[in-house]
Protein backbone atom coordinates (compact mmCIF):
# COMPACT_ATOMS: atom_id res chain seq x y z
CA UNK A 1 0.00 0.00 0.00
CA UNK A 2 1.35 3.39 -0.98
CA UNK A 3 0.93 6.77 0.67
CA UNK A 4 -1.68 7.98 -1.87
CA UNK A 5 -3.91 4.97 -1.31
CA UNK A 6 -3.63 5.30 2.46
CA UNK A 7 -4.29 9.05 2.31
CA UNK A 8 -7.27 8.41 0.02
CA UNK A 9 -8.74 5.87 2.42
CA UNK A 10 -8.17 8.12 5.41
CA UNK A 11 -9.82 11.06 3.66
CA UNK A 12 -12.73 8.78 2.73
CA UNK A 13 -13.00 7.66 6.35
CA UNK A 14 -12.80 11.26 7.52
CA UNK A 15 -15.68 12.19 5.20
CA UNK A 16 -17.89 9.71 7.08
CA UNK A 17 -16.73 11.11 10.42
CA UNK A 18 -17.54 14.64 9.29
CA UNK A 19 -20.98 13.60 8.04
CA UNK A 20 -21.91 11.73 11.22
CA UNK A 21 -20.54 14.66 13.25
CA UNK A 22 -22.64 17.14 11.31
CA UNK A 23 -25.81 15.09 11.68
CA UNK A 24 -25.26 14.35 15.35
CA UNK A 25 -23.99 17.73 16.48
CA UNK A 26 -26.74 19.69 14.76
CA UNK A 27 -29.37 16.92 15.11
CA UNK A 28 -30.14 17.75 11.51
CA UNK A 29 -29.46 16.24 8.10
CA UNK A 30 -30.35 19.42 6.28
CA UNK A 31 -28.53 19.67 2.96
CA UNK A 32 -27.62 15.96 2.91
CA UNK A 33 -29.06 13.88 0.08
CA UNK A 34 -30.60 10.65 1.32
CA UNK A 35 -30.52 9.43 -2.26
CA UNK A 36 -26.74 9.76 -2.47
CA UNK A 37 -26.41 8.03 0.91
CA UNK A 38 -28.63 5.16 -0.25
CA UNK A 39 -26.66 4.85 -3.48
CA UNK A 40 -23.36 4.72 -1.56
CA UNK A 41 -24.78 2.00 0.69
CA UNK A 42 -25.75 0.05 -2.42
CA UNK A 43 -22.23 0.63 -3.79
CA UNK A 44 -20.59 -0.80 -0.67
CA UNK A 45 -22.97 -3.76 -0.43
CA UNK A 46 -22.30 -4.66 -4.08
CA UNK A 47 -18.55 -4.11 -3.88
CA UNK A 48 -17.91 -5.93 -0.62
CA UNK A 49 -19.84 -9.10 -1.44
CA UNK A 50 -16.51 -10.89 -1.04
CA UNK A 51 -16.10 -9.60 2.50
CA UNK A 52 -16.08 -13.07 4.02
CA UNK A 53 -14.87 -15.09 1.04
CA UNK A 54 -11.85 -13.12 -0.14
CA UNK A 55 -9.42 -12.10 2.57
CA UNK A 56 -6.83 -9.53 1.50
CA UNK A 57 -5.68 -8.00 4.78
CA UNK A 58 -6.92 -7.11 8.20
CA UNK A 59 -6.83 -3.48 7.08
CA UNK A 60 -9.10 -4.13 4.08
CA UNK A 61 -11.59 -6.21 6.04
CA UNK A 62 -11.78 -3.67 8.87
CA UNK A 63 -12.26 -0.74 6.49
CA UNK A 64 -14.97 -2.57 4.57
CA UNK A 65 -16.88 -3.30 7.77
CA UNK A 66 -16.48 0.31 8.92
CA UNK A 67 -17.71 1.69 5.56
CA UNK A 68 -20.71 -0.65 5.51
CA UNK A 69 -21.54 -0.04 9.16
CA UNK A 70 -21.25 3.74 8.86
CA UNK A 71 -23.36 3.82 5.69
CA UNK A 72 -26.17 1.90 7.33
CA UNK A 73 -25.87 4.04 10.48
CA UNK A 74 -26.28 7.19 8.37
CA UNK A 75 -29.33 5.70 6.66
CA UNK A 76 -30.77 4.92 10.08
CA UNK A 77 -30.19 8.49 11.29
CA UNK A 78 -31.78 10.02 8.19
CA UNK A 79 -34.74 7.65 7.92
CA UNK A 80 -35.34 6.27 11.40
CA UNK A 81 -34.20 8.81 13.99
CA UNK A 82 -37.32 10.68 15.06
CA UNK A 83 -35.68 14.09 15.56
CA UNK A 84 -33.30 13.97 12.61
CA UNK A 85 -35.59 12.48 9.98
CA UNK A 86 -37.92 15.49 10.01
CA UNK A 87 -34.99 17.74 8.97
CA UNK A 88 -34.49 15.83 5.72
CA UNK A 89 -35.07 18.00 2.62
CA UNK A 90 -37.44 15.53 1.00
CA UNK A 91 -38.95 18.00 -1.45
CA UNK A 92 -35.56 19.24 -2.66
CA UNK A 93 -33.90 15.83 -2.96
CA UNK A 94 -35.70 14.86 -6.13
CA UNK A 95 -33.04 13.12 -8.23
CA UNK A 96 -34.35 9.83 -9.66
CA UNK A 97 -32.40 6.72 -8.66
CA UNK A 98 -33.24 4.93 -11.89
CA UNK A 99 -31.44 7.52 -14.03
CA UNK A 100 -28.22 6.41 -12.32
CA UNK A 101 -28.82 2.78 -11.36
CA UNK A 102 -30.19 1.62 -14.70
CA UNK A 103 -27.41 2.94 -16.99
CA UNK A 104 -24.76 1.67 -14.55
CA UNK A 105 -26.37 -1.78 -14.45
CA UNK A 106 -26.56 -1.91 -18.25
CA UNK A 107 -22.97 -0.74 -18.59
CA UNK A 108 -21.81 -3.36 -16.08
CA UNK A 109 -23.59 -6.05 -18.10
CA UNK A 110 -21.85 -4.84 -21.26
CA UNK A 111 -18.40 -3.82 -20.03
CA UNK A 112 -16.68 -5.94 -17.35
CA UNK A 113 -13.52 -7.96 -16.90
CA UNK A 114 -15.18 -11.31 -16.41
CA UNK A 115 -18.68 -12.66 -16.97
CA UNK A 116 -19.34 -13.88 -13.45
CA UNK A 117 -22.10 -12.64 -11.12
CA UNK A 118 -19.56 -11.41 -8.60
CA UNK A 119 -17.48 -9.53 -11.16
CA UNK A 120 -20.49 -7.90 -12.86
CA UNK A 121 -21.94 -6.75 -9.53
CA UNK A 122 -18.52 -5.44 -8.50
CA UNK A 123 -18.21 -3.55 -11.81
CA UNK A 124 -21.71 -2.11 -11.29
CA UNK A 125 -20.52 -0.76 -7.91
CA UNK A 126 -17.56 0.95 -9.59
CA UNK A 127 -19.82 2.65 -12.17
CA UNK A 128 -22.45 3.59 -9.61
CA UNK A 129 -19.91 5.11 -7.22
CA UNK A 130 -18.70 7.41 -9.99
CA UNK A 131 -22.12 9.06 -10.31
CA UNK A 132 -23.64 8.54 -6.84
CA UNK A 133 -22.68 12.08 -5.77
CA UNK A 134 -24.98 13.69 -8.37
CA UNK A 135 -28.13 13.86 -6.17
CA UNK A 136 -25.97 15.45 -3.44
CA UNK A 137 -24.52 18.03 -5.83
CA UNK A 138 -27.99 18.92 -7.12
CA UNK A 139 -29.26 19.29 -3.56
CA UNK A 140 -26.26 21.46 -2.60
CA UNK A 141 -27.02 23.78 -5.46
CA UNK A 142 -30.61 24.14 -4.22
CA UNK A 143 -29.62 24.62 -0.58
CA UNK A 144 -29.11 28.17 0.57
CA UNK A 145 -26.55 28.62 3.37
CA UNK A 146 -24.58 25.41 3.03
CA UNK A 147 -23.08 24.74 6.46
CA UNK A 148 -19.33 24.22 6.78
CA UNK A 149 -19.48 20.55 7.71
CA UNK A 150 -21.64 19.70 4.68
CA UNK A 151 -19.22 21.56 2.40
CA UNK A 152 -16.26 19.79 4.01
CA UNK A 153 -17.99 16.44 3.67
CA UNK A 154 -18.45 16.81 -0.09
CA UNK A 155 -14.92 18.17 -0.48
CA UNK A 156 -13.42 15.15 1.33
CA UNK A 157 -15.47 12.75 -0.79
CA UNK A 158 -14.11 14.34 -3.95
CA UNK A 159 -10.56 14.48 -2.63
CA UNK A 160 -10.65 10.78 -1.82
CA UNK A 161 -11.08 9.69 -5.44
CA UNK A 162 -8.54 12.28 -6.58
CA UNK A 163 -5.97 10.68 -4.24
CA UNK A 164 -6.88 7.28 -5.63
CA UNK A 165 -5.92 8.53 -9.10
CA UNK A 166 -2.43 9.32 -7.77
CA UNK A 167 -2.40 5.83 -6.22
CA UNK A 168 -3.23 4.27 -9.59
CA UNK A 169 -0.46 6.24 -11.31
CA UNK A 170 1.96 5.11 -8.61
CA UNK A 171 0.87 1.50 -8.91
CA UNK A 172 1.07 1.58 -12.70
CA UNK A 173 4.76 2.46 -12.49
CA UNK A 174 5.65 0.24 -9.55
CA UNK A 175 3.61 -2.95 -10.14
CA UNK A 176 4.05 -4.98 -13.31
CA UNK A 177 0.89 -5.49 -15.37
CA UNK A 178 -1.18 -3.17 -13.26
CA UNK A 179 -3.83 -2.00 -15.73
CA UNK A 180 -7.35 -1.21 -14.51
CA UNK A 181 -9.26 0.54 -17.28
CA UNK A 182 -12.72 0.21 -15.73
CA UNK A 183 -11.64 1.54 -12.35
CA UNK A 184 -9.42 4.28 -13.78
CA UNK A 185 -11.94 5.73 -16.21
CA UNK A 186 -14.74 5.56 -13.63
CA UNK A 187 -12.50 7.17 -11.03
CA UNK A 188 -11.54 9.98 -13.39
CA UNK A 189 -15.21 10.61 -14.26
CA UNK A 190 -16.02 10.57 -10.55
CA UNK A 191 -13.34 13.17 -9.81
CA UNK A 192 -14.33 15.37 -12.76
CA UNK A 193 -17.88 15.61 -11.36
CA UNK A 194 -16.42 17.42 -8.35
CA UNK A 195 -14.31 19.97 -10.25
CA UNK A 196 -17.02 22.63 -10.31
CA UNK A 197 -17.66 22.12 -6.59
CA UNK A 198 -13.91 22.26 -5.83
CA UNK A 199 -13.69 25.58 -7.63
CA UNK A 200 -16.37 27.22 -5.48
CA UNK A 201 -15.21 25.47 -2.30
CA UNK A 202 -11.64 26.73 -2.65
CA UNK A 203 -12.82 30.18 -3.70
CA UNK A 204 -15.04 30.53 -0.61
CA UNK A 205 -12.22 29.25 1.58
CA UNK A 206 -9.69 31.72 0.15
CA UNK A 207 -12.06 34.66 0.41
CA UNK A 208 -13.22 33.48 3.82
CA UNK A 209 -16.88 33.64 2.86
CA UNK A 210 -19.67 31.11 3.21
CA UNK A 211 -19.86 28.50 0.47
CA UNK A 212 -22.65 29.05 -2.03
CA UNK A 213 -23.04 27.37 -5.38
CA UNK A 214 -24.46 29.45 -8.21
CA UNK A 215 -27.79 28.08 -9.37
Amino acid sequence: MNIFRLAGDMVHLLSFVVLVLKINATKSCRGISLKTQELYTLVFVCRYLDLFSNFISMYNTTMKIVFLGTSFAILYLMRGHKVIKVTYDREQDTFRYLFLVLPCALLALLIHNAWTPFEVVWTFSIYLEAVAILPQLVLLQRTQNIDNLTGNYVFLLGLYRGLYILNWIYRYFTEPHYIQWIVWISGIVQTILYLDFFYYYIKSWKNNVKLALPS
Binding site: R5, N54, I56, N60, M63, N113, E175, H177
Partner: peptide, 10 residues
Protein backbone atom coordinates in the same frame (compact mmCIF):
# COMPACT_ATOMS: atom_id res chain seq x y z
CA UNK B 1 -3.51 -12.53 -7.68
CA UNK B 2 -5.79 -9.98 -6.11
CA UNK B 3 -3.92 -6.91 -7.34
CA UNK B 4 -4.50 -8.09 -10.91
CA UNK B 5 -8.26 -7.66 -10.50
CA UNK B 6 -8.23 -4.46 -8.51
CA UNK B 7 -10.23 -6.02 -5.71
CA UNK B 8 -7.57 -5.15 -3.19
CA UNK B 9 -8.78 -1.55 -3.14
CA UNK B 10 -11.75 -0.25 -1.19
Amino acid sequence: KSSATGHDEL
